[in-house]
């Protein structure tokens, strides 16, 4: 019975993850082989050509995306952590309205922001700039980070911070020496999700960069697909490389991922 369930489970996973296998398989095939009438199910005539192409043409884009993602993590946490502390631990009037506002702004479709940010950024010279993209990507990560961190910090007993303040520590010292260390896990989760979001962002990347000075990897793949879709092995090799952060995170930080995923939906 139980072994049977495991077998079914393995089958389900195999079917659902087949596209990923197919991506890896295609990434190792020579590009001509991909245009044959019937596909090769295994990369028997395996080649690293695709990866050579991917690194050659998209390597810089991967690096750009790393910079943007790290920048977004930093900006998001710097802005979100103090706000969460105030919302969770300090008696701030209007806290509920602020939380509502943050929930609401998450609903705003990105295309609307892109539309107006494009014209504003054009005037400010922020098109094609890392800072511009980091600030734009943060629109998706900051509300999420605040809500997630606040949910965690609410559960930190107030006596803890109050005791610290009685000892003469100011709000900022309490924040830095008590709250932040306690919230380490929540901060990691918020940081991880900020990284993943910025890494995967396509909408802002495609509207707010022209490809002149740098291109995030998502745009790189999009233009790669659009320009030479017969180079599927190169596209798929790039896709594999672009999936690496997600895969790594899943392996080393799974509990944070699940924590972040459920925090938005399941009550604190």
């Amino acid at each position: 019975m139980k072994a049977g369930k495991t077998l079914v489970g393995v089958l389900v996973v195999a079917v659902l993850l087949f596209p990923l296998y197919w991506m890896v398989n295609a990434s190792f095939q020579p590009s001509g082989a991909l245009l044959k009438p019937s596909p090769d199910w295994f990369p028997v005539a395996g080649t690293l050509d695709g990866y050579r192409k991917a690194l050659g043409t998209q390597g810089g884009h991967l690096l750009s995306s790393v910079l943007i993602a790290l920048g977004t993590v930093v900006v998001s946490l710097i802005i979100a952590a103090p706000a969460s502390y105030a919302l969770a631990q300090l008696k701030v009037r209007g806290a509920t309205s602020i939380v509502f506002a943050l929930l609401i702004v998450q609903m705003i479709p990105g295309i609307v922001m892109a539309n107006s940010l494009y014209t504003v950024f054009g005037n400010l010279g922020l098109i094609d700039s890392y800072l511009g993209l980091v600030l734009a990507d943060s629109t998706a990560t900051i509300p999420f980070a605040v809500l997630l961190l606040r949910a965690f910090m609410v559960s930190v007993p107030r006596e803890l911070s109050e005791a610290s303040r009685v000892d003469g520590a100011g709000h900022w010292r309490t924040f830095f020496s008590i709250i932040l260390p306690i919230s380490r896990n929540a901060l990691v989760t918020a940081g991880l999700f900020s990284f993943l979001f910025a890494w995967a962002d396509f909408l802002f990347a495609v509207t707010l960069t022209t490809g002149q000075s740098f291109q995030p990897i998502t745009v790189g793949i999009y233009r790669f697909v659009g320009n030479q879709s017969a180079d599927w092995n190169g596209v798929m090799a790039t896709a594999v490389l672009a999936s690496v952060p997600a895969a790594v995170l899943l392996v080393i930080a799974q509990r944070f991922v699940v924590a972040g995923l459920t925090s938005g939906a399941v009550k604190d």
Binding site: L17, P19, A200, S243, L250, L261
Partner: peptide, 8 residues
């Protein structure tokens, strides 16, 4: 199974 959701 989480993987598809985490990919860009």
């Amino acid at each position: 199974l989480l993987l598809p959701w985490l990919l860009p």
